[in-house]
Design a protein around this nucleic acid. Structure first.
Length: 905
RNA sequence: GGGGAUUUAGCUCAGUUGGCUAGAGCGUACGAUUCACAUUCGUAAGGUCACAGGUUCAAGCCCUGUAAUCCCCACCA
């Protein structure tokens, strides 16, 4: 006996994964480079059936978290399903240099050792981080294997691989030539701690309590008013004020437009301008304008040609301010300014308010709007082309509504800042002219030689821009670089069949992949997008380190097995929804794997018994166990795909026909669910079929009538169907069964089973009878352990299945009454089955019987009411009306029988 | 301000062109048993499908409105 009494995932998982990997079955069957074997000049691969999917690359030096666990469960189920369906599947793994994330980790590391980034130059830092990542790398790859990800490891793409950088530079050059890249001085969100700018999308806004101060700005000339009051939450920025604005339609200040006010604490005079930005309803209706430190004011400044005075430096200290305040931090400066304003009587009021404040998503530092020269992508064209492809429904979205959400986002998209002031990333391939005398040469040139700090072209010297690309700029090329798309080859793996990723990066990543995919290849990069929501803790709360409710997927894998984790995390989950997750669902998954294991164990023992019987009768002995090729042990497998081995089978009784029907339904349901990306539904269907139908009814009935060919066939079918979701246990069983061959991972998806539908339907009656016997036994008062003989009268179905019914109900005996009823008649409309109990027991059951009659009566009333409605009879489909009529007959017959019973008592 | 979603059993969720006498897992209660599996088997309880209208022979599902919860984007001097 090779099957132990329970499934121990730890004994099989790593061995099985190693065997899969070594055998090469995870590599696509169709080459990923062009071929033309038939010599017709057309790439043969474009004629084949491919399925491609790329992994959103996990951080190269990190560990997988629960979201990765979900991603793998989803993507690998798809991959394995389509592999079984005969497609050449290519699941491409990746690793992310995770620019900013990794940089933050490394910078902390530097700090720990008493260093700062400013002690090193860019190239030095880059190679230091590279080594740091190299040392840490590999954990997450092992974890992906533990989760069963059937990806093509040879094709793993790292976001800093040469081909990635090459492709990114090619695109950037094209954009530069197309005029989609420009260098501009703009306000950007800037983290003073990390000293880098961010894209709008990386900024986290939080509502916070703050103070709104009213400050008096005195008029510099004589008018009706002596002064105006402005309100601000950031008094320290007043040194950067270059105007105050009023709304042109505001009658209160009409006369003041064009006049000047004295800027407090300075000797500057600034103009009063008219701009729509000033809201007459807000505060006094007068607003100070600080173009260098506020996004709205920046716009106002552009409209009125105002000077931009930067008063906060990149490391968060005051500059370009009166001596007294110079060099202070912004918060110290604020205190000083408020104190001084108060002394001069210019601070008029202060109010507590709640306003939203921009924070660094990594360190939480308040972001400073900072005036900087950066590289920007003009997104207008890219976005509008993307919108037209989206509106043509070239990409199917799961959930559907995200398509609209994405279009809405693209419509309002602003130019994209792609410059980052951190060394860990892909260098921006732009060089600035240093020789100012070379007036004919452009200020900036594109050049790929970013390994050099300085280059010379046509005798002119240029120095490299020190900035790196926003990681989303390079990762927007992900489907292109992972599939090795080129303009020359007609790559059958591009576009991807599906892009599966988190709904939270729809804008940051998916939107950009679509824009870039179309820009580079002319085609959308994937045919479908499946977005998963957040995995929340058991209480529905977001997981976070600070809350201490983080679930580590690897812990669950170690405890219950990889399959249990996958089944558990898929359960009850649907596209785009944030959903709770608890260990319980993993336990349910573990129980299923164990159930399946034990089903297989039983079936194998039945096969073994038959085999022994046959050998006794002198049939030729099968190959000894040891001679059977075991790919898990040898790491080698037959190159041919497996067929289903047990193709010859027949059904011999109703239970067998019934299970064939149920398995067919299950297969159909799974196929349908997978087409619609309804993973939870597929898992649910398999769970029900394997447990409630196969084990509880079919296997139980097979304890009486053994049909080994059908047992083999049905077990294989269910194993294969479950394989995409529970790859390890199904493979472990497959390898342990005596008659299977090769890997289940490359088996063929099962065909529908043949069966007799009438016979299958009859088995439902048996199930109804058995269930009624069990329920009645439970309901009989005071008869907990009692077993009663079964009696029946004039019932051919029961007569033919005496043994089966007796076994399933655990009745001591079952006999025909031959026309003289006794005992308790069961509540069955079409069958006469009795429990052989004494009159006193029946008497005790009277109450339950009455209740039952009432219940059936209520159902009957509802049905009758339906039929009384002439509109129903007239308008409802005929088959429904007939169904109702039949049900009425059945209920009536049941009631009359139960009433008879009651009368007898 | 703009956009998107959710609300079904104690909990987590299914319920796909309306046919439902509303399902599952977990949990609960009662019972069983050593025979593939106690990671088991059997039985049961538990729901005015958020609320109010409407359309329809028929509404959990479609329409209108209301409430609660949540997310994203923009803005908040």
């Amino acid at each position: 006996m090779k099957f132990s009494s329970s499934y121990e995932p730890g004994e099989y998982e790593s061995e099985i994964y190693a065997a899969w990997e070594a055998s090469g079955i995870f590599n696509p069957a169709v080459p990923t480079i062009p071929i033309d074997n038939d010599g017709d000049g057309i790439d043969d691969r474009s004629k084949t059936n491919t399925y491609s999917i790329v992994m959103p690359p996990p951080n190269a030096n990190g560990n997988l978290h629960i979201g990765h666990g979900l991603t793998v469960a989803l993507e690998d189920s798809l991959t394995r399903y389509y592999r079984l369906r005969g497609k050449s599947t290519w699941y491409i793994p990746g690793a992310d240099h995770a620019g900013f994330e990794t940089w933050v980790v490394y910078e902390r590391e530097l700090e720990k050792h008493g260093h700062t980034r400013f002690e090193y130059d860019r190239d030095e830092l880059y190679s230091r981080v590279w080594n740091f990542v190299a040392e840490q790398r590999g954990n997450m790859e092992l974890q992906l294997r533990a989760l069963g990800a059937s990806c093509a490891w040879d094709d793993l793409t790292f976001t800093l691989d040469e081909n990635v950088i090459d492709r990114v530079y090619t695109t950037f050059e094209k954009m530069w030539n197309d005029g989609l890249v420009y260098r501009g001085e703009k306000l950007v969100n800037y983290c003073p701690k990390h000293q880098t700018a961010f894209a709008d999308i990386e900024v986290e806004h939080q509502d916070e309590k703050g103070t709104l101060w009213d400050i008096e700005y005195r008029l510099a000339e004589n008018t009706d008013l002596d002064a105006v009051i402005v309100s601000t939450t950031r008094p320290e920025t007043l040194f950067g004020d270059t105007a105050v604005a009023v709304n042109p339609a505001d009658p209160r200040y009409k006369e003041l437009i064009g006049k000047y006010v004295e800027l407090p604490l300075t000797d500057r005079k600034i103009p009063i301008i008219a701009d729509e930005h000033a809201d007459p309803e807000f505060g006094t209706g007068v607003v100070k304008i600080t173009p260098a430190h506020d996004f709205d004011d920046f716009e106002v400044g552009n409209r009125h040609n105002l000077e931009r005075i930067q008063v906060i430096s990149e490391d968060g200290h005051m500059v370009n301010v009166p001596e007294k305040y110079f060099g202070l931090t912004t918060s110290d400066c604020r205190k000083e300014v408020l104190k001084d304003l108060k002394e001069q009587g210019l601070l008029k009021d202060e109010k507590k308010i709640v306003h939203s404040v921009a924070h660094c998503y990594k360190c939480g530092t308040i972001l400073e709007p900072m005036l900087k020269e950066q590289w920007f992508i003009d997104v207008e064209k890219l976005a509008s082309v993307a919108i037209s492809h989206l509106e043509a429904n070239e990409i199917k979205f799961y959930p559907e509504n995200k398509q609209k959400v994405l279009i809405n986002y693209l419509k309002g998209l602003k130019d994209w800042n792609i410059s980052r002031q951190i060394p860990w990333g892909i260098a921006i391939p732009m060089f600035r002219k240093v020789d100012v005398s070379a007036t004919d040469e452009p200020d900036w040139i594109f050049d790929r030689r970013t390994n050099l700090k300085e280059i010379e072209k046509a005798g002119v010297k240029y120095v490299r821009d020190e900035d790196t690309f926003d990681t989303w700029f390079s990762s927007s090329h992900w489907p292109i670089v992972c599939t090795n798309w080129t303009a020359e080859n007609n790559n059958p793996y591009y576009p991807l069949n599906v892009m599966e990723t988190g709904a939270d990066i729809l804008f940051a990543w998916v939107a950009r992949m679509i824009m870039m995919g179309i820009y580079v290849t002319g085609e959308v990069p994937f045919k479908a997008v499946y977005l998963h929501g957040l995995v929340l803790d058991a209480e529905g709360k977001k997981m976070s380190k600070s809350k201490g409710n983080v679930i580590n997927p690897m812990d669950l894998v170690a405890k219950y097995g990889s399959d249990a984790f996958r089944l558990g995390i898929l359960r009850g989950r649907s596209a785009g929804m944030n959903q709770a997750f608890s260990e319980n669902s993993v336990i349910a998954g573990r129980n299923l794997t164990n159930k399946l294991w034990n089903i297989s164990r039983l079936i194998q023992s039945i096969i073994d018994e038959e085999f022994e019987d046959n050998t006794i009768e002198g049939l030729p002995e099968a190959a000894a166990e040891d001679e059977r090729p075991n790919p898990v042990k040898t790491g080698v497998r037959d190159a041919t795909r497996n067929g289903i081995i047990s193709n010859s089978y027949t059904t011999n009784n109703m239970g067998e026909d019934w299970i064939c029907r149920e398995i067919n339904n299950c297969l159909e349901q799974v196929e349908k669910s997978m087409r619609g990306y309804r993973f939870a539904e597929a898992v649910e269907t398999l769970y029900q079929t394997i447990w409630d139908k196969y084990a509880d009814w079919f296997i139980e009935s097979q304890k009486i009538f053994k049909n080994t060919s059908l047992l083999k066939k049905t077990l294989e079918t269910l194993l294969i169907a479950l394989h995409p979701f529970a790859p390890f246990v199904t493979e472990a069983i497959w390898q342990n069964l005596s008659w299977t061959d090769g890997f289940i991972a490359t088996a063929n998806w099962p065909a529908k089973l043949k069966y007799d539908p009438i016979s299958a339907e009859n088995f439902e009656n048996i199930r109804i009878i058995v269930s009624e016997v069990r329920a009645t036994l439970q309901a009989l008062p005071g008869t907990n352990n009692a077993k009663y003989p079964l009696l029946y009268d004039n019932d051919s179905l029961v007569a033919e299945n005496e043994l089966l019914i007796k076994t399933l109900t655990k009745a001591p005996t079952i006999n025909s009454l031959n026309g003289s009823p006794r005992g308790l008649r069961l509540a069955l409309a079409n069958h006469e089955v009795y429990l052989d109990v004494s009159e006193s027991v029946v008497n005790n059951y009277k109450e339950a019987l009455t209740e039952k009659i009432l219940a059936v009566g209520r159902e009957l009333d509802a049905l009758n009411a339906r039929m009384m409605n002439p509109n129903y009879v007239e308008k409802a489909p005929a088959h429904l009306v007939k169904e109702t009529t039949d049900q009425i007959k059945e209920k009536e017959s049941l009631i009359s029988r139960l009433k008879q019973q009651l009368e007898i008592v």
